[in-house]
């Protein structure tokens, strides 16, 4: 019971923020926070696939970027944003199933898998940057090369393309989507399927010998993470109004990884908090131009890995469990089995 209350705390806080934020914050902050939430949603996808299933996907940005582009192209063609968001989810899922099929059924090791997924996102990056020629277009929408697709319509009322949602409503939707993604992934993780996924992370051999088809579970988990990332990408594009090949690039790919490491591998709340924190930091640093943003990020991640290798959330829970012993098997990191 206590545990359920504790689990509900975070989504309740998000929902409250979604409801109250528009009354207290400036539109500029609302737009920023909407974009942060979209990014945080995508980070949750990686937190799940890496933290629960143990798949180190260094190219998580490929799903985020595909969702972003799919939304931009779909909404510009269709006009209605609701279907476009769904397409923004479906596209990365379809791609993840194809990619995952080759990755998991060929039984690649962890490191190779990470390298290949990273290469895949960089391939998308270089392809998208080379689409400046007007002959690259889908419907009336040019892909735009380096500039990407601009003037992407924002979210509108379902079924009424002319009724664009206000900044406040978009903010609420982004935060509610984040809460929804969190709840969905939390339920999935504590379901039987999620426990099997955790088991696969712990020992692939044992899981196979118990009769679980690890390739299948990995493929499903991969597709779920792609769906979540696609949702994040679609919302991000809707908030920002444009998409460029940068959604596929190396800084983007590494940011997701950074947030999950900083927040705590195996945790969900931590990565979300970390993603907000780092994005806030980045926008502040970007605004004052005194420090080099990348330098600060690099230093921060090194400090994290050296001082808090388990990440923020497990560290904080660890501190509290000194007084209240609790067992979060899922938050314990891998030890080498003897």
């Amino acid at each position: 019971m206590m545990r359920q209350v504790k689990h509900a705390l975070f989504p309740v806080a998000l929902v409250l923020f979604a409801a109250l934020g528009p009354f207290v914050l400036e539109p500029y902050d609302l737009v920023n926070l909407s974009a942060f939430s979209a990014m945080a949603i995508a980070a949750l996808g990686l937190a799940f696939v890496w933290g629960t299933l143990g798949i180190l996907n260094l190219g998580h940005s490929v799903f985020f970027g595909l969702g972003a582009y799919a939304y931009a192209i779909a909404v510009s063609n269709l006009g209605d944003s609701t279907l476009a968001v769904l397409i923004g989810i479906a596209m990365p899922v379809a791609f993840s199933l194809v990619l995952g099929y080759f990755l998991f059924f060929s039984r690649l090791g962890d490191v190779y898998l990470g390298v290949i997924t990273l290469c895949v996102t960089l391939i998308f990056y270089s392809f998208m940057t080379s689409t400046a020629d007007p002959s690259f277009h889908i419907g009336p929408v040019p892909l735009g090369g380096f500039n990407g697709i601009t003037a992407v319509p924002s979210l509108n009322m379902p079924g009424d393309p002319q009724a664009f949602l206000s900044t406040e409503a978009t903010f609420s939707i982004c935060l509610l989507s984040l809460a929804g993604a969190y709840i969905l992934l939390s339920f999935l993780r504590s379901s039987d399927a999620g426990r099997i996924m955790t088991a696969i992370r712990e020992s692939e051999l044992r899981s196979e010998l118990l009769g679980y088809d690890i390739r299948f579970y990995k493929l499903v988990g991969f597709a779920v993470s792609a769906a979540i990332a696609g949702l994040g990408g679609a919302l991000y594009t809707a908030v920002m109004g444009y998409v460029s090949p940068n959604v596929f690039d190396l800084p983007q790919a590494s940011q997701f990884v950074l947030w999950v490491i900083a927040g705590g591998l195996g945790a969900f709340v931590g990565p979300v908090v970390a993603s907000f924190g780092f994005q806030l930091l980045s926008s502040q640093l970007g605004a004052n131009q005194v420090f080099n943003t990348e330098l600060i990020f690099g230093a921060t991640i090194i400090l994290f890995v050296m001082l808090v290798p388990q990440g923020l959330q497990p560290m904080l829970l660890g501190l509290s469990s000194l007084k209240f012993p609790n067992r979060f098997g899922i938050l314990r990191r891998k030890e080498k089995p003897a």
Partner: peptide, 20 residues
Amino acid sequence: IPSIYANLDVRENIRLAGLR
């Protein structure tokens, strides 16, 4: 070579075996 889920508790180990 023993193959168990080292970071999960024993009950969860057993449960995962029965779950199938």
